[in-house]
Design a protein around this nucleic acid. Structure first.
Lengths: 224, 224
DNA sequence: TAGATTGTTAATCGATTAACAATC
DNA sequence: TAGATTGTTAATCGATTAACAATC
């Protein structure tokens, strides 16, 4: 049924939002929804939603709409949430800590199987039930458990060396929180970047260029 | 000189990367660079880089290229890094903790002036030199310091109420880590979302649909 | 001046929106 | 059957790439 040729990144990045939204509706007991209703709630066009879904198959019913529970399931399957890719976090600093504790890896297609760091202060501490291991053990760990994805939460200074090491062992999938462009050096790697600095700068731009008239008057005196 | 009409989001989201890259080059002592050289290093086309920059002005010199230090400065100015928008973090959990400790707000156009939470366990603790304050004090705090941006790191259950409260006080700029679509309810708000779940699901999709032939053989036996 | 590289216009490509026939 | 809403094709819009004249 899937007519998958080459799905554009624009479409792919909308899928998690559909998924999140449909699951919410499902939990709220909504059984059926039309593309028009969905579009109103998501701030998109109905046309776009139907186009997006039809990249993967015809999940709706003419004259009726989409079954919420079923569609959520289909999208989850498209995303691959059932996979449980074995995942290791590198870097037990603040960000590593946060994602270890906070992410529901199991519901999002992954399974956290280890956390590594090279800081003696952090090694041996326990994050969210998992003991932080010494990076020097990782080669053995890799052979034994063959992790498939690395979440990179390490400082700028260590990132290049670490990626080179991990890539050398065979890891090709990266969730990258460090400011380093993995794809430039390793074109066959699958990389999802979370660059918080870039995100904050984007917000800074948006605030700076937003219609000044809407700013609270009190702030104007601080401006040149 | 700026010919700013309406800059597309695609362009804006590339600016922080240019900025980061040029600063790096500047630190490395590179004084001059051509769009072709930049494009090779960033994995873009020279044409696109010149188009992007010319949205804001002509920063180069024909036959010569761009001055690295000057261009970095120009882009920083376009982004608004000198602003120091007064910022408050809501939620002193893992993510709030991480961004308080890790982000160089001052270099990115912001200034962290407070952290609030409603959990008695967290109130009074100190994150990165700032004491976590009780959310009930925020109204007074707002009157006194007029924060301009709110970083939202609070659980799903509390986000709706919190945003309603903050918006009511007059805050219009949000860096949103919570799974809640602020812009749907408050169309005039300036929102930058960091949805880590969505990011991870996108990665899951990418891994799942990446050429299977490249997977290590050892993994195939785990697949159905 | 000749060579290089920008700034900018034109051409292409891709993504979104509109329209409507198919069909539940 | 009539009404509704999808799936899909066509039209539009926007973003990227190519080309080249301007000029340092």
């Amino acid at each position: 049924m899937p007519k998958r040729s080459k799905i554009s990144m624009s479409v792919i990045r909308r899928l998690p939002r559909y998924y999140r939204f449909l699951n919410q509706l499902d939990q709220d007991g909504v059984t059926r929804i039309s593309s028009t209703e969905l579009s109103a709630r998501l701030g998109l066009t109905a046309s776009q939603i139907r186009q997006d879904l039809n990249c993967f198959g015809g999940f709706g019913q003419q004259g009726y709409g989409y079954m919420v529970h079923q569609l959520a399931g289909e999208i989850g399957h498209i995303l691959g949430v059932e996979h449980r890719y074995r995942t290791v976090i590198f870097g037990a600093g603040n960000i590593g800590h946060a994602i270890a504790a906070q992410m529901d890896f199991g519901e999002l297609g992954f399974q956290l199987i280890g956390i590594f760091d090279n800081d003696p202060q952090k090694i041996g501490t326990v994050l969210h039930g998992i003991e932080v291991m010494d990076l020097v053990w990782f080669q053995d760990f890799y052979k034994k458990y063959v992790p498939e994805m690395a979440a990179l939460c390490i400082p700028r200074s260590a990132i290049e060396e670490t990626v080179s090491f991990l890539y050398g062992l065979g890891i090709r999938n990266y969730w990258n929180f460090s400011h380093y462009d993995i794809s430039m050096k390793y074109p066959d790697a699958v990389v999802e970047n979370v660059h918080l600095n870039d995100s904050l700068l984007t917000l800074c731009y948006e605030i700076s260029h937003h219609d000044k008239a809407k700013k609270p008057v009190a702030l104007l005196k601080h401006e040149k």
